[in-house]
């Protein structure tokens, strides 16, 4: 079953055999991320499920519930959704991009603090072939480090986009938060 995994979106499990237990120290070489005082370790157990024996705990997999959960997550983080009907349409069209934007929004708050304001929008929406989702970061004061931080986050996800339909860009418009 492990050979079924072929998508970078599953980076976390790539190259790891089913049932394997992977232990690794969580290292932060990134000066923009806070450093913990004691070493932290991560254990990952990889399992590929073929069949659950007890169906009572499961639910029928719904695209809309996935998207609505992601939207709820954005709401909890205080992400502002600009032109909401267009954004909703885009997220429903590209659920993988929706998941990616959720994960990136979490990262943004690790690289910036909670004074950062996030805005989710779709650019070029009049042309369905070139439309893309943007997450715009606004901070109170801009210096060179803002774009450096954004670049760091982009480096972490750009390779995932090659395997997805749709596109996602983390950016800033240099407007100070009020």
């Amino acid at each position: 079953m492990a050979s079924l995994v072929s998508r970078p979106v599953l980076d976390v499990v790539l190259g790891e055999e089913e049932g394997s237990l992977v232990v690794s120290e969580i290292k932060s070489h990134d000066s923009y991320l806070s450093k913990p005082s004691t070493p932290r370790y991560e254990i990952r157990e990889v399992a590929f499920l073929e069949q659950e024996n007890d169906p009572t705990g499961e639910e029928s997999v719904s695209v809309s519930v996935l998207i609505e959960d992601i939207l709820r997550h954005f709401r909890t983080l205080g992400v502002k959704i600009v032109s909401s009907s267009v954004v909703f349409e885009y997220l429903y069209h590209y659920p993988e991009i929706a998941k990616l934007s959720r994960d990136v929004s979490n990262l943004v708050y690790q690289y910036f603090d909670f004074k950062a304001q996030l805005l989710l929008d779709v650019r070029d929406y009049n042309d369905p072939d070139s439309a893309y989702l943007t997450l715009c970061v606004r901070v109170p004061v801009y210096d060179d480090s803002v774009m450096e931080r954004i670049e760091k986050i982009r480096e972490g996800y750009y390779h995932l986009l090659n395997e997805m339909t749709g596109w996602f860009l983390l950016t800033t418009d240099y407007i100070p938060t009020r």
């Binding site: 370790y41 254990i43 339909t165």
Partner: peptide
């Protein structure tokens, strides 16, 4: 398209973070 269903269970204490990832493609 391809879609991964992931069921992620987290276990945490002071120094060890554990994750079990169940994946269906």
């Amino acid at each position: 398209e391809q879609h991964a269903l992931q069921d992620i269970n987290l276990l945490q204490d002071a120094s060890v973070k554990g994750t079990r990832i169940n994946t269906t493609i």
